[in-house]
């Protein structure tokens, strides 16, 4: 079957990938077990979503006995960066500072969170100068 590479995940796929990132690897049953009991997703539907994720190149599978074990090919950090880059391009005129400014302006941001951001920026600046 011809693989169709995609850059971004749909909402359901992101839900599955988040669970796989937590599990590091797992079968369809493992992923379903990690879901909320109210989710009520059929086994076949979950298997199909994982198979599509494999076709898109987000996960890889190995067969263990009769079960397929799925493992993320893309790290969570890498996908976060990719998504932020797209968000910056589409919504913030490709200017990350506006994105950060909007984030910092958010009234829900706690003092601790702001301090954490300041520390991260200072660390990055120190690394760049050294």
């Amino acid at each position: 079957m011809k693989d169709k590479k995609a850059e971004f995940l749909t909402e359901v796929e992101l839900e599955f990938m988040t669970l796989l990132w937590q599990l590091e690897q797992g079968s369809v049953r493992d992923v379903l077990a990690k879901m909320s009991p109210t989710r009520n997703l059929a086994y076949t539907s979950a298997a199909t979503i994982l198979r599509i994720l494999e076709q898109k190149g987000f996960v890889t599978s190995t067969k263990q006995g009769k079960t397929f074990i799925y493992k993320p090919l893309l790290e969570k950090d890498a996908y976060q960066s990719r998504s932020l880059k797209k968000l910056s391009e589409n919504l913030f005129d490709n200017t990350p500072s506006i994105l950060v400014a909007r984030l910092v302006d958010d009234s829900d941001m706690t003092e601790d969170a702001l301090e954490e951001i300041r520390a991260l920026i200072e660390k990055r600046l120190k690394n760049d100068t050294s």
Binding site: E11, E13, E15, N40, A42, S45, T48, I49
Partner: peptide
């Protein structure tokens, strides 16, 4: 639509 897989009744 692939998103419909997670809504079994709609599917």
């Amino acid at each position: 639509p692939s998103a419909m897989l997670s809504r079994s009744e709609d599917l």
